[in-house]
């Protein structure tokens, strides 16, 4: 039962995202045979070094979605303070309310069933523009972002070009 209500909800979100996609975001299941694995494309926000880039990410939903949040992982190289070197995204909306090892996130920012995949994707997009320095997932990128911003931006731009095959 839990599984079918989860896939029903995911199907509804898929329809919403297809009919009225947020600017710069394309998302949906890899195949409809498995509603629990999605692939999303996020455009780099304008006015940031990510501008012009398109970043693919994989979303894995738990069987008890929307009680528990999905996990999100970028599939191309990302140089960002809040993205682990293996691509996993570390952002408060992907954390369940009860699980906050660092105790700095507000409950309202974290995952709850009233959030949605669309909100996650929008949050991640704005995270690209404004890294959260308090919880670096990639310590080296965070340090570079703080101390050598131009080097950081150069790496990001290089990754954008590489990911588009240029």
């Amino acid at each position: 039962m839990a599984t079918s209500s989860a896939s029903k909800r995911l199907f509804k979100e898929y329809r919403g995202l297809s009919n009225d996609p947020p600017e710069g975001i394309t998302a949906g299941p890899v195949t409809e045979d498995d509603m629990f694995l999605w692939e999303a494309l996020i455009q780099g926000p304008e006015g940031t070094p990510f501008e012009g880039g398109v970043f693919p990410a994989e979303l894995k939903f738990p069987k008890d979605y929307p009680l528990a949040p999905p996990t999100m992982k970028f599939l191309t190289e990302m140089w960002h303070p809040n993205v682990y070197p293996d691509g996993r995204v570390c952002i408060s909306i992907l954390h369940p309310p009860g699980d906050d090892p660092h105790q700095y996130e507000q409950a309202s920012e974290r995952w709850s069933p009233i959030q949605s995949t669309e909100k996650i994707l929008i949050s991640v997009m704005s995270m690209l523009a404004e890294p959260n320095d308090e919880s670096p997932a990639n310590v080296d990128a965070a340090r570079m972002w703080r101390e050598r911003r131009s080097d950081y931006e150069q790496i990001v731009r290089q990754n954008v070009r590489k990911s588009l095959g240029l």
Binding site: T26, E39, L41, Q43, L166
Partner: peptide, 20 residues
């Protein structure tokens, strides 16, 4: 639906590449 999603993905990537 699947084809539409696929097309939207491709368009997004190709448009970004063109622009760059």
């Amino acid at each position: 639906r699947q084809a539409n999603l696929q097309r939207r993905r491709e368009e997004m990537i190709l448009a970004a590449r063109r622009k760059l």
